[in-house]
Design a protein around this nucleic acid. Sequence first.
DNA 1: ACCTGAACACCGTTCAAGT
DNA 2: ACCTGAACACCGTTCAAGT
Lengths: 220, 220
Amino acid sequence: MPRRSDRPLDRDLIAACALALFREGGLAAVTTRRVASALGVSPMALYVHVGNKEGLLDAVVERLMRAIKIDLDSEASWPAQAEQWAHALRAELSAHPGAMDLLRTRRWALVRCTEPLIRALLAAGFSEERAIRAARLVTWVTMGFLSVESGVDLLGSDDRQADRLERSLDRLEVLEGRAATSPASRGRGVDRADIDALFSLELRLIVRGLEAGLDLEPHD
Amino acid sequence: MPRRSDRPLDRDLIAACALALFREGGLAAVTTRRVASALGVSPMALYVHVGNKEGLLDAVVERLMRAIKIDLDSEASWPAQAEQWAHALRAELSAHPGAMDLLRTRRWALVRCTEPLIRALLAAGFSEERAIRAARLVTWVTMGFLSVESGVDLLGSDDRQADRLERSLDRLEVLEGRAATSPASRGRGVDRADIDALFSLELRLIVRGLEAGLDLEPHD
DNA sequence: ACCTGAACACCGTTCAAGT
DNA sequence: ACCTGAACACCGTTCAAGT
């Protein structure tokens, strides 16, 4: 992370510094005042270059996403490539825990990453319109999953969540009186393996559906 | 929204007041200080009853979700009921724009709402374990979609997003040189109808996949 | 046991002033 | 054109003090 005024301060330098703070402490750590002080500059010096807090965060996602390159195996079938794309994106973004906090309201920052996906679909003979719509579906599915996933606190013991979840499950009348589910699946919440499996499954169902042309049927 | 100290201040009264603020101004409007002043009380008076900000927000979601009842048509097939459940949840939550900001990190608050879904699956002959896993999938899919959807700013002209999106799309090399997509789908972003259709499609693919038993196949 | 007031360590942002 | 310092209107939370 850059310090002092060895360089004349511009949007890029600010973004680099803010991104460094983001990587360390997530969205909460990106503060105009903290970025400024890390750059050895007054908070107001930033405003000329990024406009305001919103613009600062725009610069952060932009830089974050520019570092992400998704390469697909062009020999593979398009369904395989679609799944590969989603898994690759998830892998990249899971390296930056707070990424979805930024991306959820800044879909434009992801567009560049969807290029290989759209390219794969076009190469497979999709019409331009269908390719864009299919890519949008896969993108939303992936972003949605990552967004929910990012709300799951697996780090630490997370006793609060687990407690509340257990209490909620215990109150579920449907399950009452039934042979209690294996304690493993009852109130335990989800772990890494569950989440990975859930993502793979969701993705598979979506891609298989596209493969079957279910997106071409007239909709209710 | 309740005012003054006509009642002796407890967790429920605080939650009711905070929820009222939430409905008006979203998550940003729910502030310990604002809730306190709306109740005609010092900020610190809340701490005895809700612990801290986190606990205050817990109380808000709890109350928010308790007001949501999802009724399914038990005559319908389980796939129909599953889709019905998701559409109903989306309809309820879309009435509270910031709801996903609270729910994303508080999955336990949604458990109660999944009861009719699990019940429908069990009634259709699902094993308890498969019912829970299928319900979890449908829940994550729905929450994920709503989470992304809530980041889409359709209100107002949202020029900033649209501009940035357009610029991102214009930079997509894949689309360059091609017969420009219909201006309608190029850079325009998405509108209400697109999003509704996308949700219906995603849901249909997931439910059709479950129907086909794709969740029972051995996973890679 | 419950509530208050003053205080602390933060925020984002405005504004007049400097160079 | 770029940056600073002081100030404003907020935050969540601690702590000693009141009843």
